[in-house]
Write a protein that binds this DNA or RNA. Structure first.
Length: 636
RNA sequence: GCGCCUGUAGCUCAGCUGGAUAGAGCACCGGCCUCCGGAGCCGGGAGCGGGGGUUCGAGUCCCUCCAGGCGUACCA
């Protein structure tokens, strides 16, 4: 497989070594800033200048001469421009290699790892989605799920072993809220109302009434206690309710082609005594202490002991409570136990049973607390690395989890506990107004979502809007749905993790420009050309003596795919691949518009070359789209 | 107070971990259909919050100031 960049780096490395530079002078090779300079360039001479205490232009000349004498693969000629050393490639060799690699790619075989990229040994466990079981999935959950799903896909595509967990938080107060709504207030789904949407509504309704009906708060407390104690009618009801909501979430996510290997239930973690087990370990290691006085009296906390000096008030403020004075473990405590399980460090395991195989998007397996239908011979967890896809607001809690592992002596695992923090989705003032929220003109730039207040954009609703918008132009319903899912998904992936998405309906549903629809269109266009030239002879290609600039640019984009995918995987950043896919699609549109129709091309060599280039584009863009979690459509 | 994040074109965002003249999309203006699907392409204007510093070279690293967001729960 061609790794042009890697081969050039290796050669530059050798040349630098020959000149007496050590590893402190990096052999950096990147795409040339302008085509006139060449295909690839290195600024190595400037970096070497300091070490060698010599004139960079002179060094560039020597590097060029040494590289020219070296017979580097793919290179026709080395030149210098303004202290840069440039490689102009031999089109007759690198171009067929790149096209052949793209066409020969097998979806089941990992992409080749370019020089400088390695594949982590062992399993990476990705936890994402993690929606409370009291409401329908909204746009914020969807960002989480799209990010997590895409990270998992990118890792798998680049040769990593991946397990995806969806953590079901089914024991908190939110669930109790809905149970109160149904059992105490008698709320019922409306005609045709999906169950998760009904729960969202019940949640808002109950939350609103807490303010005016204090006795309801007492009902909630009793409900919560019953759920936690288990083995009673309320607990059974809550579990069944949670199960129904989970199925709704899975169905929603399935519409975006998001799936899971395992559902992990917080209630199972409790019932199987995971926390008790973790607690004993933490206590034995001295990682947690029982506070005997002050406002946290009776709590087990994990104190921050870094820094050392800090007065008592500071220590108290900074201590993280893991067990409340009433003996109930906090969410973070359960998360520590779960994290230990993920690495296989807990010393306990779940039971497993099949989940609803008939359900769209359902994983095969869920955790269980024993009982009927337990699966044998399945293995989950035992990860070498754990990626928790959780929004940036929970950074503090994630740090506590990581710290707990460290204090238990699991330093490597602490190191490999990654909080994939992403910023939240909020609403633009315009979007907020569309949802009926009043926003003053000089007000905030974004409006926070709130499930409790009912200020939200449901994932299903957004997708339905997108489908409705695309239905007219799409060839059929199936295509409209695929286009819509791609549009929404791309919109959520094209932002950096650290960027708050100011959600805007027009922007999310746009079908032109930098959108998922544009990507699909480019792919379908390439597929269309291939259909119309299907009878062509697919013999070996002859590269034109002079490539057009649009052809060269497109070939470089195709060549970059394994490298960009590896970068996306290494940095756990879907945006890298999303941006790449757009640049590839753009390069293809450029090529399409600035070359005569291939269908009418009469020069057989040129026709065959451009057809192969189109085929390589389709294969690469299709691969990238699927890795981003979008269907690659041949017709729209 | 402390911690994390953000500030790039009128708007929404990229910027390959320090490299050559900072790129897209939207919006606006002007072009391109006897041509493989115009959900496209070409052209136009305008930008790295301020100030220091390190460096041959800074949107990128350091310091500082300004503006905004989030966190710092016996909630999850």
């Amino acid at each position: 497989m061609p790794d042009v960049r890697g081969d050039l780096e290796r050669a530059v490395r050798t040349a630098l070594d020959e000149l007496g530079c050590g590893p402190e002078v990096e052999a950096v090779v990147g795409p040339s800033a302008r085509p006139e300079f060449g295909d690839w360039s290195t600024p190595a001479s400037m970096r070497a200048a300091r070490t060698l205490r010599r004139n960079p232009a002179q060094i560039a000349g020597e590097l060029r001469d040494r590289l020219a004498a070296m017979d580097v693969p793919w290179v026709r000629e080395w030149t210098t421009t303004d202290r840069y050393v440039n490689a102009r490639l031999e089109d007759a060799t690198w171009v067929p290699a790149v096209i052949a690699e793209a066409l020969g790619r097998d979806p089941g075989t990992p992409l080749p790892a370019p020089r400088g990229h390695t594949v982590l040994a062992g399993t990476t466990l990705v936890e994402h989605t993690n929606i409370n079981t009291n409401k329908a999935a909204h746009i914020g959950h969807l960002r989480n799920a799209c990010l997590g799903d895409t990270v998992a896909r990118v890792l798998r595509r680049t040769g990593h072993r991946v397990e995806v967990n969806d953590y079901i938080d089914d024991t908190g107060v939110q669930v109790a809220d809905v149970v109160v709504g149904v059992r105490e207030l008698g709320l019922q789904p409306r005609e045709g109302e999906p169950f998760d949407q009904f729960c969202s509504r019940a949640y808002v309704e109950v939350s609103r009434r807490y303010d005016t009906e204090p006795e309801l708060v007492e009902r909630r407390r009793a409900t919560l206690r019953a759920i936690e104690e288990g083995d009673n009618e309320v607990a059974v009801f809550a579990k069944q309710l949670a199960s129904q909501v989970v199925d709704a979430h899975l169905a929603t996510m399935a519409r975006f082609d998001i799936g899971y290997d395992l559902l992990t239930w917080e209630s199972d973690i409790l019932e199987l005594g995971f926390w008790r087990h973790a607690f004993d370990q933490l206590r034995a290691a001295g990682a947690i202490v029982l506070v005997e006085s002050g406002k946290l009296a009776g709590c087990w906390v994990m104190p921050w002991d870094e820094g050392g000096e800090g007065d008592e008030a500071d220590e108290e403020r900074d201590a993280k409570v893991l067990v409340k004075s009433d003996g109930v473990a906090t969410y973070t405590a359960k998360d520590i136990a779960y994290q230990l399980w993920k690495f296989g460090l807990l010393g306990l395991d779940f039971h497993y049973r099949p989940w609803h195989p008939e359900q769209p998007g359902s994983p095969a397996t869920t955790t269980a607390d024993g009982g009927d239908g337990v699966l044998d011979g399945v293995s989950f967890g035992h990860a070498a690395r754990v990626v928790n896809v959780i929004d940036a607001r929970q950074a503090y809690l994630q740090r506590v989890v990581r710290d707990a592992l460290d204090r238990l002596g699991h330093h490597t695992e602490a190191e490999n506990s990654i909080h994939l923090a992403y910023e939240v989705v909020a609403l633009t003032p315009a979007a907020a107004r569309e949802l009926g929220v009043e926003v003053a003109d000089g007000g905030p730039t974004v409006v926070a979502l709130s499930g409790r207040k009912g200020i939200e954009v449901r994932a299903d609703d957004l997708l339905d809007l997108a489908i409705a918008k695309l239905r007219d132009k799409a060839r059929d319903e199936h295509t409209a749905r695929a286009l819509a899912a791609a549009a929404v998904r791309y919109y959520l992936l094209k932002f950096s993790l650290t960027q708050i998405i100011a959600f805007d309906f027009d922007e999310a549903l746009r079908v032109t420009g930098d959108t998922g629809v544009y990507l699909q269109y480019a792919h379908a266009r390439a597929a269309g050309i291939l259909r119309k030239t299907a009878g062509d002879d697919d013999g070996p290609i002859t590269v034109p003596a002079e490539l057009l600039p649009v052809e060269r640019a497109l070939l470089h984009r195709i060549d970059a795919y394994p490298w960009e995918a590896a970068e996306s995987a290494a940095s756990l950043a879907p945006v890298v691949l999303a941006v790449y896919a757009f640049t590839l699609a753009s390069a293809f549109s450029d090529f399409y518009e600035h070359t005569p129709p291939i269908v009418r091309e009469e020069d057989p060599q040129l026709r065959r070359f451009r057809r192969a280039l189109t085929a390589a584009t389709r294969a690469t863009l299709g691969d990238a789209l699927r890795t981003l979690g979008m269907a690659a459509l041949d017709e729209v």
